[in-house]
């Protein structure tokens, strides 16, 4: 008998009280919770909630986006910049930094100052960015090893709350939900930003009429 048979046999014996004809739909999950906890201005809420994690949040019009990114990079004294495949070329500013592209070794990524990416979605209520390794985001290591992550979020990518995000995402892709810079609460349960993941996170929200 394999361990698989053993475990499955034990489970079935343990569930002797469950009627054999109980269908999976017999105990429907009550889903009368809200689809969203967001008020009207989802973009504004997203900006506020991301900033609550001590990330830097800037809003820009499509015309100003490139200059805004340039300003953030210059302000962070960036010398090497990782740009994933598929990142919109019109958003990559020129500057004193060296641009790194795939293929990259972990050592290259580790030594890079900043990674510049897009994202799959933003979640307003939780201030979360979701990466799905799609175009402009790169494989997961790209957004992990550089110490500074600059993420461009288009306003129309921002969904209200977690249920909308889960519905939107493809469970077959490697997903990373990012809520602020890496942090720990392991010392006296006090939150400290900056452990193994990027220690600083900048978010540029691109929308037609910046709401300030």
């Amino acid at each position: 008998m394999t361990a698989r048979d053993t475990v499955l046999g034990r489970i079935r014996a343990a569930l002797a009280d469950v009627p054999a004809d109980e269908a999976v739909g017999d105990a429907p999950v009550p889903r009368d919770y809200r689809r969203s906890h967001a008020e009207a201005d989802e973009v504004g809420l997203f900006a506020e909630r991301v900033a609550d994690y001590r990330a830097r949040v800037v809003q820009a019009t499509p015309e100003r986006a490139r200059a805004t990114i340039a300003g953030l990079l210059a302000g962070s004294d960036v010398r090497t910049l990782v740009v994933p495949p598929g990142f919109p070329p019109e958003l990559v500013p020129e500057g004193p930094w060296r641009r790194l592209e795939e293929p990259l070794e972990p050592g290259d990524l580790e030594a890079a100052d900043t990674v510049l990416t897009t994202c799959r979605a933003g979640i307003a209520v939780t201030g979360t960015i979701v990466l799905d390794a799609g175009p402009g985001q790169g494989r997961r290591a790209l957004t992990l090893l550089p110490d500074h992550h600059l993420c461009v979020v288009r306003a129309e990518q921002i969904v209200a709350d977690v249920p909308d995000a889960v519905a939107l995402l493809d469970p077959g892709r490697p997903l990373t939900f990012v809520s602020g810079p890496s942090a720990t609460s392991d010392i006296e349960l006090d939150r400290v930003e900056g452990v193994h993941g990027p220690r600083s996170l900048d978010v540029v929200i691109v929308r037609e009429e910046p709401h300030v």
Binding site: Y53, I123, V162, A165, R191
Partner: peptide, 28 residues
């Protein structure tokens, strides 16, 4: 998959007391 819409709200708020924990990774 839809069940995550509940647990990704319940877990971080109950656990570290945050709206969302810094990182959640999923893979298949």
């Amino acid at each position: 998959w839809q069940d995550l819409e509940v647990f990704l709200q319940l877990l971080p708020r109950s656990s570290t007391g945050e709206r969302m924990n810094p990182y959640t990774s999923t893979w298949r």
